[in-house]
């Protein structure tokens, strides 16, 4: 009985680990440049979504932003709808999580 339980536990661990590996492997890093068409800050102010129209494909892509520095720039309007940005995000299924989010403009 003990042996069967051990085998089941080991099997479960392998299964969970496999899913984790597959999930990690499926996350893809994407870079785009485009204009922000929408910024929406979550009610708890801890995240936001920004919709970017990719300059190359013209596709609108929704990106979730959680880093404090970028959220702060949304709040005090250093980054606005209409600004062009360069972003690097992790695409995992339907969710795109920002890893870098910068305005292209400078002086």
């Amino acid at each position: 009985m003990k042996k069967i339980s051990s085998v089941i536990i080991v099997f479960a661990i392998i299964l969970v680990a496999s899913f984790t590996v597959i999930r990690t492997a499926s996350a893809e890093e994407v870079k785009i440049t485009g204009v922000i068409s929408k910024i929406e800050i979550a009610a708890d102010q801890k995240s936001a979504i920004a919709v970017i129209k990719d300059n190359k494909s013209s596709e609108s892509i929704t990106i979730t932003i959680t880093d404090e520095a970028t959220l702060d720039k949304f709040k005090d309007k250093r980054i606005l709808e209409g600004d062009e940005i360069r972003t690097k995000f992790e695409k995992d299924g339907d969710k795109n999580t920002s890893k870098m989010f910068k305005k292209t403009a400078g002086c």
Binding site: E68, A69, D72, R86, K102, K103, T104, A105, G106, C107
Partner: peptide, 25 residues
């Protein structure tokens, strides 16, 4: 830091282009 970096971050043609340092935590 935000007040300073509002200008100093974007010098040289974009964010962290000129001096290439970040003042993030």
């Amino acid at each position: 830091i935000k007040n300073c970096m509002a200008c100093h971050e974007a010098a040289g043609g974009g964010a962290m282009i000129k001096r290439g340092f970040s003042m993030a935590k």
